[in-house]
Nucleic acid binder design. Structure first.
Lengths: 219, 219
DNA sequence: ATAATATTTTATCAATTGGTCAAATTTTTG
DNA sequence: CAAAAATTTGACCAATTGATAAAATATTAT
């Protein structure tokens, strides 16, 4: 008996549990979909491509995710934690300079370790964020405003060179995510002989230098 | 007699000239295509969408550009000048700090005045730059290496805080283009009442501050 | 004006796309 | 082992997509 309807609609088996196969195959599909969506955006990606990349037939894939949209949604959801965690981790009680440097470092590590996730996010934003705009306007904005206040407090206390905290966060996002999103260009321009992820070290050094000098309070 | 073959293959009319109608319609199409490609990437955009946006029928559009690829190619080509000019304008004989500040300002103005072009470029890079990788590895890399040398010279002369010039350029590209490419997110996060392009002023102030302090030589 | 040329429309195509269905197969459970 | 449930497959479908052909219309040159 095909259970795809029951299964697909609530994402559960009859007994209310996910089988081992389901867990594994869903994971397989999400991995393949991440690759494809990151490279072509939502509209530019096809279910066939994802099924191919996952090594399964299209109807089989659709047994696990009833619609293309659902796969994308799943990816975005699990991406969000990865995306917001580093910002959440900024500690209002820590040393201002150290906190911001640590944040930059963490964001850069995410670009290095999860470049496809970064490109998935970038694609979504570039295309007008149709599927995550509410999260951006809600959860993200709230969190950003909160941390911007923390940073503003540090500046008011003379512990950081005063500047707009929102733009500071933008510039940290931009510079760090650039290494994942514009990876092709970065590699082409640097084009050293052996180029694994070596440029990430150079980037870390450069960014620490830039932001440390740029944010150090005037004495 | 339908001249689409002759016309489409070499982009010229029989008499070797472009008619007024051809000039105007091509322009109309490119404008519409820029909008669509910037929003959905190459694969995510359809000829129908572009034709709709240009207010003409699909076959009529295909009379001016025989293939979807050709429209995209045309856009990319005319984009390249806009993209490389500001970098070319960096003057080795100018004042280092002033030159870099001016470069940042110009790049930010381009994000403000040509956001769709920026997103078109970002989409192309994100998707692996399949259609412009040779330009990146060739013309762009050559130019970047040349200007990186100029900047290195300034650092060696003690006129700039020493750091990797390539990463410096990356960080300028990233921070300025961010305001075009991630526009939706920027607006959502800032979300002030009246928000035309006001945030570009804030961005200019912030970036000048950041890079000026970050690059000023230690005395 | 009229012939030549350029532009636009209508109709159409084959391929691709997101998605469905029922049958076949495999896995799990009793 | 057998029955039940879960998974996989192959055959389809309607809509969309990139593109073409030919007829109809408009423009330009003589």
């Amino acid at each position: 008996m095909p259970l795809s309807k029951t299964h697909s609609k609530n994402g559960r088996t009859n007994k209310g549990r996910e089988s081992r196969i389901q867990r594994e195959k869903r994971e397989l599909i999400l991995g393949a979909a991440l690759e494809v969506f990151a490279a072509h955006g939502f509209r530019g990606s096809t279910i066939d491509q994802i099924a191919d990349a996952a090594g399964m037939s299209k109807p089989n894939l659709l047994y696990y995710f009833a619609r293309k949209e659902d796969i994308h949604q799943s990816l975005i959801e699990r991406l969000m934690d990865t995306w917001l965690d580093p910002l959440k981790a900024i500690d209002a009680n820590g040393d201002p300079m150290a906190e911001i440097c640590a944040y930059i470092k963490r964001k850069l590590e995410i670009s290095r370790d999860f470049p496809k996730e970064s490109r998935l996010f970038a694609n979504e934003i570039l295309q007008g964020a149709p599927r995550i705009i509410s999260m951006i306007e809600g959860e993200l904005k709230t969190l950003v405003d909160e941390k911007a206040n923390v940073i503003q407090g540090w500046m008011d206390a003379g512990k950081l060179n005063p500047c707009d905290p929102h733009h500071l966060l933008f510039s940290i996002w931009a510079t760090t995510q650039h290494y994942a999103d514009f990876d092709v260009q970065v590699r082409a321009v640097l084009a050293r002989d052996a180029q694994g992820d070596t440029h990430f070290e150079g980037a870390a050094t450069f960014l620490e230098n830039l932001f440390c000098k740029g944010l150090a309070p005037r004495n």
